[in-house]
Amino acid sequence: MKGLTLSQRVAAKTILVIIFLFKLRNRATRKKIAFGIARIIFALSPKTRKRSINNLRIAMPDQKSDDRIRYLAVTAYQYIVFGVLENFWFEDIEYTFEMDAATKALITSGGPLSIATMHLSCYEAVPFALQKLTGRVTTLSRVPKFAAGLHSVYAKNGVCCVDKSQAGAFLALAGKMGSNGVVCLHSDHFGSDTELDFFQLQTGAPAGPAMLSAYAKTPLLIAYAVLQKDNTYIIHIETVSEFPIGQSPKAFQFAMQAIYRQFESIILQYPEQWCWFYKRWR
């Protein structure tokens, strides 16, 4: 915990204690506790509630039931909070992959891959599970100093995590592709690389997966984790393009728009598991 302020050290230790206490219970109990805590936090966070509800109304303009909207807002918050905690005991998680034969051939080919991921339930389950399958996953994250334990979670699961705040982070990711790496980048958040439609609103989006596919000349895929009723995960992997994306901003935008169309479909299929409380449309 070198280089941390006192309050950061206290926060870091608190997180470790909380995780320790959770791990004393089985997963089903951990889920119940996490859902309970998340419900309380959500109830005490009017800005988060308002943002979640506004975002749900953007994505589901035809949904007339306020009760349904409120249910989805709080449930999604619970899934995300539990999903973040699950990173700390990923070794306890059961999961299966779901992908078609062509995608499986790409994944097992040993070649570099660019994968767009999304904030659905335990969203780091994707790189962690892919690491077990391929042994060569890199991701990008901005881990706050007080949550230094999170960085060790990536290391524990064998995933190389590039610090998003470092200058030249993109070059580090490109370098990994050059070593046949599988680079997983969360792509459903706001970004300034490109403009596209997301639930019929123009918004900014990152284009990292498309840019990496273009420059490193790799296939482009998407992947996401869905928590099942039996508390196992299905890691879905789908091919967006088995051929590299074209090398122009227009090609990047076209590819990311295709990805976002797929994101829309996935989010509407699993609305109780997506991160609605994030400030997505700016």
Partner: peptide, 18 residues
């Protein structure tokens, strides 16, 4: 360049390399 020029973001790095 890197870290000093605000224009040198990931998009421009890719376009520069190309």
């Amino acid at each position: 360049l890197l870290g000093e020029l605000s224009e040198l973001d990931s998009m421009s790095i890719v376009l520069l390399l190309i």
